[in-house]
Amino acid sequence: MSGLTLIFGLFFYVSIAIFLVGFMAKVWKYGSTPAPLKIPQTPAPVSAPGVGVRYLQEVFVFKSLFRGNKVLWLGGYLFHLGLLFVLLKHLRFFIAPTSSILSTLVKFDVYSGFILVAALIFLLILRLAIDRHFYISLASDYALLLLLIGIGGTGLLSRFWENGHVRPSVPEVKNFVAGLVTFHPASVPEHKLFLIHFSLVMLLLIYFPFSKLMHAGGVFYSPTRNQIDNPREKRWVNPWAKQVTAAAAAPAAAPVAAAEEPSEG
């Protein structure tokens, strides 16, 4: 095993570990933090399946963003759609043998990578060009867009820049990745473009749990969206509140009853 393979192998495991542990820790925190009160943003669904439908609309068509800003929606939607297809195509590096659906997708979908990068550039332009968006943008917002553009750009180059002889061969990459996921590391393809692309992705994974990218998991824990609008029908119990006794509200009245201990949290 070459030193380079060792470095990139370790880089991969460390990044994946940080990503997985960090992501799950954050989601665990979101999930375990109590919601003391019913705060659905109404009109809201009055049943659990209704909340499911609300989420389908948010996750698959970005309904609220669409209502908020159509131009932004276009940029955001195309980016996420492009990302979805690009990620699907990357499955071919992990799955052996490659399924026919995936091969077909890889063969016919030559656009998603371009759409991904174009949408990112569009979002960057919006941040710079719209006065309000420029005002609220932080250095980290630009950095993240540039990182994603870097990943998309190197990815596109390695796929299409064949004449420059920088294109790593798919079997070589596949061999390396398969080795990583089966814990039998194979040599890393020594193509600069691949190594840059790979490194940037690892950086993204490391940054992911500590950044606003956590919206990917966090969106499901938003109380204004995931709560059922049924506070009159079904009593919502606050896990941490001690019941205020009647005596506390009217200090002149009877002795203070012992406050109930919260049952959980």
């Binding site: 954050k26 979101y30 609220s64 963003l65 908020g68 800003n69 932004l72 955001g76 919006l126 941040r127 719209i130 309000r132 968006h133 609220i136 943008s137 932080l138 917002d141 606003k212 956590m214 919206h215 966090g218 969106v219 938003s222």
Partner: peptide, 8 residues
């Protein structure tokens, strides 16, 4: 945690 400062 999760605001992406999209601007909507």
């Amino acid at each position: 945690d999760i605001c992406v400062r999209c601007g909507s």
